[in-house]
Amino acid sequence: MVRKIEMQPVNRRDMMKIVGAGAITGVIAGLLPNLAQADAASAEAAVKKAAGGKTLADGKITLDLPQIAENGNTVPIGFEVESPMSDSDYVKTVHIFADKNPEPDVAVFHFTPSSGRAKASTRMRMAKTQNVIAVAEMSNGTVYMAKSEVKVTIGGCGG
C-alpha cells in the first residue's frame, strides 16, 4: 500500500496555515525533548502492569516477526506460546507491546482451553524501528516474556 501524495496548488492562505502548523509542532516538539524516551518508559510500565508485579521468565514464547518491515502500516505479527492447553494448564492472556509507538499497547489476546493452541497472528502498525514485546500469562500465574526487534523502513502512523 503506497500512499498517494496529492500535489495540489497551494495558495498563500493555505501556505500560511501549513507554516503556522509547522511552527506550533516545532514548539511542542521543543517542549517535549524526551518524547521518545517517555514512550520507552511507558512501554516498560505497560509491560510491568501486564506482568502484575510477577517476575518475567524467558522462554515458552515464539515470536514470528519480520526482521525488516518495509511498510510500517501493516507489519505481520504472530506468536505461539508453548502449552498443553488443557483445562488445568493453559495460556490465559498474551499482551503485545511496541516500545516506540505513540501508544505501547498493541493487542491483548485471551485464550481458553478450547483454543487448542495458544497461537495467533494479526497485522500491526509500527511508527519506527523498535522492539515488539510479548507477555504471556499462564493459568497457574507464571508470566513469560519475549522480545524481538523489527526494523521499519517507512513508519506507519500517518501524519
Binding site: V106, P113, K119, R123, M126
Partner: peptide, 14 residues
C-alpha cells in the same frame, strides 16, 4: 490503535 486497517486475525480452535 496499533492494529492495522482492515484487521486480520488468525487463531486456533479445538
Amino acid at each position: 490503535p496499533a492494529i492495522s486497517a482492515n484487521p486480520y486475525t488468525a487463531f486456533y480452535v479445538k
